[in-house]
């Protein structure tokens, strides 16, 4: 079966502590619950959660939606975004099946990156590794003080920002991510690849699209 791999790359650095990290946890939980009601997503979407603070780690390896259990993440440390980019690229290279004589290809993976800070590690090195993999939709979400110009290097025009790290904006973001995954899992059946922001559902007003 052709899978739709989805990587959620989440900033868990110290600056996210308190309300923002709580909302991230709620958001992931909400995303999974909503996707479970979509038969297409339930059968095709595979989720992975990668978190980064002082280091990056694969909090949940790529897992089919029925088996997926949302992790509870805590906020601490610095912002190793570069390492997170390398890690998600390594994971995708390992996980995502490409076409060969004996297997059908997966859909190109979707990546949602969320951060509120500027990287404290070697960002360019991670970016170079990230760019070596082939991605479907790559969306970067900058919260508050995030360095938007760096996010644009990752995701091109698909950079959104949240005006504040408040519950409503974060909830809106995760709802939108859910809709985006649903849309993409639908296109799984219909032969249309999602590659840019313009093929995803329109972001809600709480999310600013950076142009």
């Amino acid at each position: 079966m052709r899978r739709l791999p989805v990587y959620l790359v989440l900033d868990t650095s110290g600056s996210m502590s308190g309300e923002p990290i709580q909302q991230v946890n709620n958001g992931v939980q909400m995303l999974v619950s909503a996707l479970r009601q979509d038969p297409q997503a339930l059968e095709t979407a595979f989720l992975s959660v990668i978190t980064f603070d002082s280091t990056a780690k694969e909090a949940v390896p790529l897992t089919d939606l029925p088996s997926f259990q949302a992790p509870t993440v805590a906020a601490t440390g610095t912002t190793a975004l570069g390492e997170a980019l390398s890690l998600v690229a390594d994971c995708a290279k390992r996980d995502v099946k490409t076409a060969s004589a004996t297997q059908k290809a997966d859909w190109r993976p979707m990546v949602f990156i969320m951060t509120d800070g500027s990287p404290t590690d070697d960002f360019q090195k991670g970016l170079a590794r990230f760019k070596k993999e082939k991605w479907g939709a790559v969306v970067a979400c900058g919260v508050d003080s995030a360095d938007v110009s760096l996010l644009q290097q990752i995701a091109g025009e698909a950079v959104v920002t949240l005006s504040t790290a408040d519950a409503k904006a974060l909830e809106a973001f995760f709802k939108w991510v859910t809709a985006s995954i649903s849309t993409s899992s639908k296109s799984v059946q219909t032969g249309k690849e999602v590659e840019g922001l313009n093929q995803l559902p329109p972001p809600p007003p709480e999310i600013q699209v950076v142009v």
Binding site: V96, T98, A99, D106, R108, G191
Partner: peptide
């Protein structure tokens, strides 16, 4: 006719 990834026809 198919590509490296799914959906590429």
């Amino acid at each position: 006719d198919s590509g490296e990834h799914a959906g590429q026809t």
